[in-house]
Amino acid sequence: MSSAENPIFSEARLAEIKSVVERYPAAQSALLPVLHMAQEDFGYLSMPVQQLVADTLAVRLMAVREVVTFYTMFREQPCGKYLMEVCTNAGCMLNGANELAAHVCETLGINMGETTPDGLFTVTEVECAGACAGAPVVQINNEYHEKVDAAHMDAFIADARGQGGAA
């Protein structure tokens, strides 16, 4: 089976990648889109995944490494099933983001940047999410949660634990 340690793109993915490449003057332009796809397919960008992307687009592995390490959204390590990204920049900070972040970490018993031992939750601090009217903002697996309070996070965590326990 295809995995981060032994990755292969599906036929459908390869067809999609081909059509993305055609939209640009050169294949390297498709690097960010293809890395997003790879991260979605394999969970994170392990070295084998990065090599696969390099081979698929016929670009040097070094060019892929350069991009993966430059952009914050690309992850070289696996993260929890629920990636909680708390914005603590100015607009959110002025509306209680630090207290919210501390509450989430305490509830989960982990430090900022860590993953719970059961692999369910990762909490990170991120830069301005571009949704400051909804401060404080938390992105959970790329979905925006706005005007978030401790009760909202508690409910989300309890709910996710219920589902995680059943799985």
Binding site: Y24, Q28, S29, A30, L32, L35, V67, Y71, M73, F74
Partner: peptide, 26 residues
């Protein structure tokens, strides 16, 4: 074509943006 960035403020600067669409660090 919609081209998604990947979390780098600097890519809002127009020449960094162009580098990014060329598949490079911004």
């Amino acid at each position: 074509t919609v081209h998604r960035g990947a979390g780098a403020y600097i890519c809002g600067e127009e020449t960094a943006l162009i580098e990014s669409v060329e598949g490079k660090a911004g």
